[in-house]
């Protein structure tokens, strides 16, 4: 009978119980996301601006198209701080334009369209770009065809494309979705179809490099099929360049929309968007700086917050960073 005292084991090897209760993956993501101040701020601002443009017009009920020629060229209310003689009024806190339309109402109304165009066109762009990029990078046989197709689209000038699309599709779209809805679909479509090429090429480049990595080889050796390979192994690894493209894509979509309106192939003139408010105000930049600054700031802040949000999401979704 020998008494054997239990062998002292290393503390590190003891594993009596989990130190914290198990959490779902998404809770982990949320916890990580919360640590990123910029992302939280960006998300908050984006939520604010989205709510503002959705519900704002119900609170600030002046019609954006209401003309009041006697109250034209009003300055925003803050100008009164240093210039007591300026034409200001609490009835128009952001002032009015050269026809007496309320600028705050136009900003809210314009924000709706710009945000909707920006998001939808960006999602469309990312979807086409990622799809083409991944397929071209992964399936060698399709690479040549898809990349030559990308070259083709890249070399087509956007203005004739837009004119052709307006000529061919405006009438049927307007007939089925009304003048505003029809133009909206057309413009989102045009921007989406003409701006995915950069994303596609970058994604393809990344996929080409990833394909040679060991984990892909490992996955292939256990018989992973192509669909699973792409969705489980490749896509999560190309999220970061896609995020960057998406942020830039949102800004580009908002600006492309304004350039289209500027060239006369965009929305009707009584349909404000941020880009169009900005473009229309450039000629009066010296006398009324706020008319360019307000939409300019709105576009910049939106893009900036999408960018931070993207940064935070990328970090939160990357298991290598999460928990460090």
């Amino acid at each position: 009978m020998t008494d054997t005292t239990p062998q002292e084991t290393y503390g590190a090897l003891q594993d009596k119980e989990p130190q914290k209760p198990p959490q779902s993956q998404w809770r982990e993501v949320w916890l990580q996301f919360r640590k990123h101040k910029g992302a939280v701020f960006g998300g908050g601002f984006l939520l604010f601006i989205t709510l503002a443009v959705i519900f704002g017009p119900y609170i600030w009920t002046i019609d954006a198209q209401k003309l009041d020629i006697r109250a034209k060229d009003m300055r925003p209310i803050y100008v009164a701080l240093w210039d007591g003689d300026a034409k200001t009024s609490w009835g128009h806190p952001f002032g009015t334009d050269q026809l007496g339309r309320d600028i705050l109402a136009n900003m809210l109304e314009g924000g709706r369209v710009s945000m909707a165009v920006g998001w939808l066109a960006m999602i469309l762009t990312m979807f086409i770009g990622t799809f083409v990029g991944v397929v071209a990078g992964y399936f060698k046989r399709l690479d040549g065809v898809l990349m030559r197709f990308t070259d083709l689209v890249l070399s087509l000038p956007i203005l004739p494309i837009t004119l052709v699309a307006v000529t061919l599709f405006r009438q049927p779209l307007v007939a089925s979705f009304g003048p505003e809805g029809g133009m909206f679909i057309l413009i989102v479509g045009i921007i989406g179809v003409t701006s995915w090429m950069q994303t596609a090429r970058i994604v393809r480049g990344e996929v080409l490099a990833l394909k040679e990595r060991e984990f892909v080889l490992a996955a292939r050796s256990i018989g992973t099929n192509s669909a699973a390979m792409i969705t489980r192994h490749l896509l999560p690894n190309v999220v970061s360049p896609i995020m960057v493209s998406a942020t830039l894509g949102l800004a580009a979509a908002i600006i492309t929309e304004s350039a289209l309106s500027f060239l006369g192939v965009g929305f009707p003139s009584d349909f404000p968007t941020w880009g169009k408010l900005l473009a229309d105000a450039v000629s009066r930049m010296e006398a009324f700086p706020e008319r360019v600054m307000l939409p300019g700031i709105a576009i910049s802040l939106t893009v900036l917050s999408v960018n931070y949000l993207g940064d935070g999401l990328r970090d939160a979704l990357d298991p290598r960073i999460r928990g460090r």
Binding site: Q65, K66, L67, I69, Q98, L99, R101, L163, P179, L263, G264, V265, P268, S269, D270, D280, S283
Partner: peptide
């Protein structure tokens, strides 16, 4: 056609015509 002054005119005329019971849809073309 697309031109800043013409778009201002369109907005004004649309407003006046709405006051006499005519509904106007605006369109500008390159």
């Amino acid at each position: 056609s697309t031109n800043a002054v013409r778009q201002d005119f369109q907005a004004l005329v649309k407003d006046w015509w709405s006051q006499i019971g005519i509904e106007t849809e605006l369109r500008n073309i390159n």
